[in-house]
């Protein structure tokens, strides 16, 4: 008996049909298929199992698999919706959908809140904000005095923590972003609109019409 390896059987665990993902995200079917090309590349960079491991995400973001980064850790945790230690294709597409230029702003605001709520308490706390500032300074090899960093964090809290309870809740965050819309600029990746140009190989193999 022969063994026929069909295209379907080669799909990794967690693979979801592009038509399903396109219906639930701002992406078209073609764009989801192009994202699959990107996903395949990322998910085979260290362990070729069709799943993105944390080291693979770090490698893609920083060209270094061993360099721990606060942002990469948070992104990984938020993308890993099932919390099983890997990012599956469906999780990858749904999460990236939030970064699409056409995604609802409310989704971007909520995602940024969860990103900055480092310990997932439902609040952005003073020490979390300071930790993020320290992380970005470390990232950029910038040195600022602790006093200066705390002044910046204090000032930000005095503007954003309108209830004055020492922590920023989602409601305060939404209000703060509405006054400072540039804060969610990093929640939009214009590149996602051109994803089919970046990964054109799918055009030859695409099975579904948009």
């Amino acid at each position: 008996m022969g063994c026929v390896l069909t295209k379907k059987s080669r799909r990794p665990p967690g693979y979801e049909e592009p038509t399903v993902l396109a219906a639930e995200t701002p992406f078209t079917v073609s764009e989801v298929e192009a994202l699959y090309e990107l996903f395949k590349k990322l998910s085979s960079s260290i362990i070729d199992d069709g799943l993105i491991h944390k080291e693979e995400l770090q490698l893609a973001l920083f060209r270094n698999r061993n360099r721990r980064n606060l942002f990469a850790d948070r992104i990984f945790d938020l993308f890993d919706v099932k919390r099983n230690g890997v990012i599956e294709f469906g999780e990858f597409v749904r999460s990236l959908g939030i970064f699409h230029p056409n995604a609802p702003v409310e989704d971007k605001i909520a995602f940024a809140f969860r990103l900055y709520d480092l310990r997932q308490t439902g609040f952005i706390e003073w020490d979390e904000l300071k930790e993020m500032v320290l992380a970005l300074l470390h990232e950029s090899d910038l040195v600022l005095s602790d006093d200066f960093i705390e002044t910046i964090v204090n000032k930000t809290f005095s503007d954003a923590d309108t209830k004055g309870d020492g922590k920023i809740d989602l409601e305060e965050w939404k209000e703060f972003v509405s006054k400072n819309p540039s804060l969610i600029k990093n929640m939009t990746l214009p590149y996602l609109k051109d994803i089919t140009l970046a990964f054109p190989s799918f055009v030859i193999s695409t099975e579904v019409e948009d």
């Binding site: 942002f71 940024a112 600029k185």
Partner: peptide, 25 residues
Amino acid sequence: KPVSMNAFELISRAQGFSLENLFEK
């Protein structure tokens, strides 16, 4: 000297806090 810098603004602008590198070839 008043500080007008916003900590979230700093974070959101930081290169290391961006997903853009995912798309670099």
